[in-house]
Computed example of a mutant assay.
Amino acid sequence: MSNQAGQWLVWIGIICAVVAFFWQPVWMSVIAIVLGMIGLFSGQKNLNWAAIIIGVIALIVYYI
C-alpha cells in the first residue's frame, strides 16, 4: 500500500472514531477499527494504532 493511501485511511479512521462518540457509535467505531487495521500495512503505524484505540474506546463508552 502506498504511503499516501495509508495517510488517507488513517485520517478517515480517526474522523470516524471521533464521530462515533456523538453519532452511530457502533458502526463508526467498527469502521474506524477496520480502517486502522487495514492502514497498518502502510507506513503510518502510530496513527493507525490511534484510530484503532479511539474506536475501541468509543465502543467501550457506548456499552458502559
Results as ranks from 00 to 15, higher is better:
M1E: 06
N3C: 07
N3E: 15
Q4M: 07
Q4V: 11
A5G: 05
G6K: 05
G6Q: 06
Q7H: 08
Q7I: 09
W8P: 00
L9E: 02
V10R: 06
V10I: 09
W11Q: 05
W11C: 03
I12G: 01
I12P: 00
G13I: 04
G13C: 05
I15C: 08
C16D: 08
A17G: 09
A17N: 02
V18N: 04
V18C: 10
V19M: 09
V19E: 02
V19K: 02
F21L: 13
Q24L: 14
P25S: 14
W27H: 10
S29L: 07
I31E: 00
A32M: 12
A32W: 09
A32F: 09
A32L: 12
I33V: 15
V34H: 00
V34Y: 00
L35Q: 01
L35F: 01
G36E: 08
G36N: 08
M37K: 08
M37Y: 11
I38N: 02
L40I: 09
L40V: 08
F41G: 15
S42F: 12
G43T: 14
G43N: 13
Q44W: 08
Q44F: 06
K45L: 10
L47A: 10
L47W: 14
L47R: 08
W49K: 02
A50I: 07
A51W: 03
A51K: 03
I53R: 01
V56F: 01
I60M: 11
V61G: 09
I64F: 11
